[in-house]
Simulated scan of single mutants.
Amino acid sequence: MENANNSSGINFILLGLFNHTKMHQFLFAMVLMIFITSLMGNALMIILIHVDPQLHTPMYFLLSQLSLMDMMLVSTVVPKMAANYLMDTRVISPTDCGTQVFLFVSLGGGECFLLAAMSYDRYVAICHPLRYPILMSQKLCLLMTTGSWLLGAVDGLMQAATTLSFPYCHSREINHFFCEAPALIRLACADTKLFESFMYVCCILMLLIPLSLIFASYSLILVAVLRMRSAAARKKAFTTCSSHLAVVGLFFGTIMFIYMRPKSYSSEDHDKVVSAVYTIFTPLLNPFIYSVRNKDVKGALKRLLVKLLQCQH
């Protein structure tokens, strides 16, 4: 117990996701490619939405915020993991560990509320198209976006501060590739039941409330779409909404698996794989899901390429 009162000055050890076998070296290279592609895809979405006037709508503004959160989320995890792997070190300082917990929880929580705001936007656009400019005003859009960032940041600050306040007096090896609160508190040499209950309540607020709003919005959307007489209108509505639901299902499903299942079903190795899905792969899929099946985004990309070619000539 000699380190119990001095845990803030001793580094943690991240066991990582890969070892140095040829197979894992290949998987690590794939993760780096996914990371770079994710950054480029999300950055392109932000640029297109910013420079193309036809995309200056609440829907695409919210989408640009989602891309920004995804870029920050993947950048919170992958660079440190890659640096440790390439330099053959596993050390992470308590400050860096706390920063990862704060950023990860903040961005994950903020994205939950942002996805709920996007579902409300689709509900208004499909169910109340004539009142869309009023019900989805610029002021409300900014308010929902700011609220998403702030609510995520408050949750992240509380979890990071509480997690690092525990004494870590035994093994400081985190069986993970980044500092995630559930993996970190397993190492605490103190009673963490109160914090685990607090974290569970936070998860209910940060996950189930937005998810309930999303289900409510899409239930109303489904009723409205089924009442449409035009087959083309139904197809367009289903195409737009299915993209959003794919993102929601993947993101919420994996996070709820980590944070809301009973502790007795916890498996550290499975947790690492599932965490990789929503920290590395989901940020890659989002820009493709929202762009490949979206005529507005594809049109904006064509117009941008034409402008660039004209500038070169």
Rank of each mutant, 00 (worst) to 15 (best):
Y120V: 09
Y120K: 09
Y123V: 04
Y123T: 00
V124Q: 08
A125P: 00
A125H: 07
I126M: 06
H128N: 14
H128C: 09
P129G: 10
L130E: 13
Y132G: 04
Y132F: 15
P133E: 05
I134H: 07
I134R: 07
S137T: 03
L140H: 00
L142E: 01
L142N: 06
L143S: 08
L143Y: 07
M144Y: 11
T145D: 06
T146N: 02
T146R: 05
T146H: 01
G147V: 05
G147Q: 03
G147P: 03
S148A: 15
W149A: 05
W149T: 00
L151V: 15
D155E: 13
L157H: 03
M158C: 13
M158Y: 12
Q159F: 09
Q159L: 11
A160W: 02
A161K: 05
A161S: 12
T163R: 03
L164W: 01
L164M: 15
S165I: 06
S165A: 13
F166Q: 05
P167N: 06
Y168D: 08
C169H: 11
S171H: 07
R172G: 08
R172L: 12
N175L: 13
H176W: 09
F177Q: 02
E180H: 10
P182D: 03
L187G: 03
C189Q: 13
C189K: 03
A190Q: 05
A190Y: 11
D191F: 10
T192H: 07
L194T: 14
F195Q: 01
E196A: 12
E196S: 15
S197H: 10
S197P: 02
F198W: 04
M199R: 14
Y200R: 11
C203Y: 10
I204E: 00
L205K: 06
L207C: 12
